[in-house]
Simulated scan of single mutants.
Amino acid sequence: MEKYVLSKTIAIVLGALTIIAALGYGFLFLLGTSLGQALHSEIDTSATNKLTLLILISLLIVGVITGAGSFGLNWNVWRIVYCGFCLVLGICLLVTFFISIGAIGSTYEFMILCISMMYFWMGYLVKKKK
């Protein structure tokens, strides 16, 4: 069996899940913003919109790097960078899960937790060359 087959498979699935989570988060953001404007909210959201769009774009880029980056695992330097990338994202998503408990709904919170655990698992698999 070829090296990194399991890692590449998980990376493609995980990249797709990250992109889906970003699009779901974007949908919730647009829904909340639209409802706020429809109800004539007095809060200025121009600074919040820029930060939220930056987060959405960052999540989409992370999803693409996760999926496409797995095809360069045969190079030693990229493998080390990719393993660190996976572990850092796993930690960040785990912290995000704990921060968002009760805020965005149990479905999205559970999805963030699952994606975090999958990033940890993928970092482990890349380290073990599976």
Rank of each mutant, 00 (worst) to 15 (best):
M1N: 10
M1A: 08
M1S: 10
M1H: 06
E2H: 03
E2W: 02
K3R: 14
V5A: 11
L6G: 00
L6F: 15
S7F: 06
S7M: 08
K8H: 04
K8Y: 10
A16Q: 02
I19F: 08
A21S: 10
L23S: 05
G24H: 08
G24W: 12
Y25N: 08
F27A: 11
F27L: 06
L28K: 10
L28Y: 13
F29L: 10
L30P: 01
L31D: 13
G32M: 06
G32K: 09
S34T: 13
Q37T: 12
L39N: 03
L39H: 06
H40M: 12
H40V: 04
S41Y: 10
S41P: 01
S41A: 10
D44K: 04
D44N: 15
D44A: 13
T45K: 06
A47E: 12
T48L: 12
T48D: 10
N49G: 05
N49K: 05
K50S: 08
K50Y: 11
K50G: 00
L56D: 04
S58G: 12
L59M: 14
L59S: 11
L60N: 01
I65S: 01
A68G: 09
A68F: 15
S70D: 06
F71W: 12
F71R: 07
G72C: 06
N74Q: 14
N74L: 14
W78T: 07
R79I: 09
R79D: 11
C83W: 14
C83V: 11
C83T: 15
F85A: 00
C86R: 07
C86W: 09
V88C: 11
L89C: 05
L89D: 01
G90I: 05
I91Y: 15
L93S: 10
L93Y: 14
V95R: 01
V95Q: 03
I99C: 00
S100A: 12
I101G: 00
S106W: 13
T107H: 04
Y108S: 01
E109L: 06
F110P: 00
C114K: 01
I115D: 08
S116Y: 11
S116N: 05
M117A: 14
M117Y: 13
M118W: 15
W121K: 00
M122F: 09
M122P: 01
Y124E: 08
Y124H: 07
L125I: 01
L125W: 10
K127P: 00
K127V: 05
K128W: 10
K128C: 03
K129M: 04
K130I: 13
K130T: 07
